[in-house]
């Protein structure tokens, strides 16, 4: 990834100068046609991807998975097991690609870093008082710095939805900028928690806000609220990164997370990526799936394609 951290680009550098300019810009973004977005997403979801294209899509999807465990009950043993699975998703097939990253809580980063050493798999950590984001800024920065120091090279931060919904955009902006600084060389994924943003217009505004503030990735959800990554929301975010690159030349990644459980859904997302942002985004550096159960279904479908018979959950690890 080559994203720069400094200016957001020629036309947008002035946008964040004050609360008023930021508000003017974000509210000046074109409104989202809700019905149109949902219809477009539903239409893209009907594409039929078969045989060799399907095999390609499954392998790509596996390479895009951020294998995630974010439970209160996470133990070092569970995290090590997850890292082993990230290195060799299908022990029966050495040809199976590795996943993109493992995503854990900050306290589990040292364990995961040791388990992933030398594998080339990225290590992501959630930070900034995940999942609510309701903590003082100093705490969030300390949380981030600790995760980076422990070995995380990707940070998944949550925005403060309360502040965003209250219209205090510059505070949200400043927070992202500060966290980006605390990240150092680590990549920053900004979780918008679209399930709590209520409208598609807000999703578009939050996407632009995060990108202007220096996000390397924009991510839909924490996976902790009932409405997580939906296809229309991802479509809107993909439009945002496409338009942002057109305006500034800087490419931002997108990560839908939560609720994507089977291969069919994953392929719908890949179709949407290709048709909305374009082929440049069909790479693990620019598109990720935040998931845990998805990987097993991808592996089962992969096995079906290679062996010709339907596989079952008995033949893959429970994670």
């Amino acid at each position: 990834m080559t994203a720069t951290t400094t200016s957001a680009g020629s036309g947008l550098s002035e946008v964040a100068r004050s609360e008023a300019t930021l508000r003017t810009f974000l509210h000046g973004l074109p409104g989202v046609d809700q019905i149109g977005a949902e219809q477009r997403a539903a239409m893209l979801g009907t594409r039929s991807i078969k045989t060799s294209a399907k095999a390609w899509a499954i392998d790509l999807a596996i390479r895009m998975v951020d294998l995630t465990t974010l439970e209160g009950a996470d133990t070092p043993g569970k995290v090590r097991a997850l890292c082993a699975k990230a290195r060799r998703p299908d022990p029966a097939d050495p040809g199976c690609p590795t996943v993109a990253a493992v995503c854990v809580y900050p306290s589990m980063v040292p364990t995961a870093a040791a388990a992933l050493a030398g594998s080339g798999i990225h290590l992501a950590s959630v930070a900034t008082a995940f999942p609510s984001g309701q903590a003082p800024l100093e705490v969030k920065l300390a949380d981030t710095a600790a995760a980076v120091a422990a070995g995380a090279d990707e940070i998944d931060m949550v925005i403060n939805r309360g502040m965003f919904l209250a219209g205090r955009y510059s505070e949200v902006y400043d927070e992202i900028v500060a966290v980006k600084q605390a990240c150092g060389n680590a990549h920053l994924k900004v979780i918008l928690e679209t399930g709590e943003l209520v409208t598609y217009d807000n999703v578009r505004r939050a996407s632009w806000l995060a990108m202007i503030a220096g996000a390397d990735f924009i991510k839909t959800s924490t996976g902790k609220v009932p409405i997580a990554a939906t296809l229309p929301v991802t479509l809107i975010m993909l439009e945002a990164v496409r338009d942002f690159r057109a305006a500034t030349g800087r490419q931002i990644g997108v990560k839908p997370a939560g609720g994507i459980r089977n291969t069919k859904d994953a392929i719908k997302f890949l179709v949407t990526v290709n048709e909305t942002a374009g082929e440049d985004w069909l790479h693990p550096d620019w598109f990720r799936f935040g998931a845990s159960t998805l990987l097993n279904d991808l592996l089962m479908q992969r096995t079906k394609l290679t062996t010709g018979v339907y596989s079952g959950p008995d033949y893959f690890t429970v994670d």
Binding site: G308, V309, Y310, S311, G312, P313, D314, Y315
Partner: peptide, 9 residues
């Protein structure tokens, strides 16, 4: 045949 070969049956 697909039922007989299915690994989850």
């Amino acid at each position: 045949p697909h039922l007989a070969a299915h690994m989850d049956v």
